[in-house]
Design a protein around this nucleic acid. Structure first.
Length: 280
DNA sequence: AAGCCGATCAACCGCAATGTT
DNA sequence: CAACATTGCGGTTGATCGGCT
């Protein structure tokens, strides 16, 4: 079968738009309105694919687009929404008036993602990167030990107990029980037993959409946290931002704190090369 | 001054979802 | 209901720019 191309490849211009092309597109849409992108370029006198016209309009020429730098509030909103929705850029954009999915996606990849990593937060799971905690100490231990078994023995004393307790609180009980990491199961003392934050590339929506059974197990953990964590900022309207049925307000409040107040900012040195530890 | 390199972002591509006939 | 057309989405690419050597 095969699908027909979205446009005739011959005679169709690609690459950056010229001001003249922009004006033609704007004029046409002002008069006829957007839509029917396939015939639009022909009628508007543009040597462009309809898809290219649609993209140019929705991402750049639309009059309601807010250009310029993202504000702090917008950035925090993006982090919040991404923690719930994952890479659903269009859904995120729908909740940020004047911003396009493309713009948000770019901003995430070039700014926010790096910022989170620098703060010790996994940009995929939005959880603290416990595997990076006190990494320098761990590395030092490795260099000082003759074999890996002895490194494992020393690891429990090297990791910050307070951080491990915090991680235990954040971990859904079911996941904690499964404890996929035999390293911890065999070597950490009972009280501090906590798996390293999983380096998962699963879509975020999977992990934040608990089944009926899982939902009940989430509540006590987060309720405990809510008591110990300061309230959210008043100007962060999470209800309006996160009205998705699958979202978990408790989880969001944790993320809000983690991201907006430096709660999980473990202060890695500036010269530490985080990207070496990033999964792609 | 020239070359290199990383950051940024507009634009493209392929696929999925949705609409229409 | 199937086939096809159109639109929307997310990942990726590549042009451009500024800083550094």
């Amino acid at each position: 079968m095969g699908r027909s191309p979205c446009c005739d490849k011959n005679g169709v211009k690609k690459g950056p738009w010229t001001p003249e092309e922009d004006q033609k597109l704007i004029d046409y849409i002002r008069f006829h309105g957007p839509g029917n992108w396939r015939i639009l370029p022909k009628n508007a006198g543009l040597q462009r694919c309809g898809k290219s016209c649609r993209l140019r309009w929705t991402n750049y020429l639309r009059p309601d687009i807010k250009r310029g730098r993202f504000t702090f509030e917008e950035e925090e909103s993006i982090i919040q929404l991404h923690s719930v929705m994952g890479n659903k850029w269009s859904a995120i954009a729908a909740r940020l008036p004047g911003r396009t999915d493309n713009e948000i996606k770019n901003y995430w990849n070039t700014h926010i993602r790096k910022r989170l990593v620098r703060s010790g937060i996994d940009p995929v799971t939005h959880s603290p990167r416990l595997d990076l905690l006190d990494l320098s100490s761990l590395l030092a231990a490795i260099f000082n030990q003759p074999n890996l078994a002895s490194v494992a023995t020393h690891a429990s004393s090297l990791l910050n107990p307070d951080i491990l307790r915090l991680a235990s609180l954040l971990m859904p009980p079911q996941q904690a029980l499964q404890n996929p990491n035999p390293f911890y199961a065999s070597n950490l003392d009972q009280e501090l037993q906590t798996p390293v934050t999983s380096v998962s590339s699963q879509p975020q929506t999977e992990s934040i959409t608990p089944t009926d059974n899982e939902t009940s197990s989430f509540k006590p953990v987060n309720a405990t946290l809510d008591e110990s964590l300061p309230p959210l900022k008043d100007n962060l309207d999470l209800d309006s931002l996160l009205s998705t049925p699958n979202s978990s307000p408790q989880q969001n409040s944790i993320d809000a704190e983690a991201n907006s107040s430096g709660f999980f900012d473990f202060g890695f040195p500036d010269n530490f090369i985080f990207d070496d530890f990033m999964f792609t």
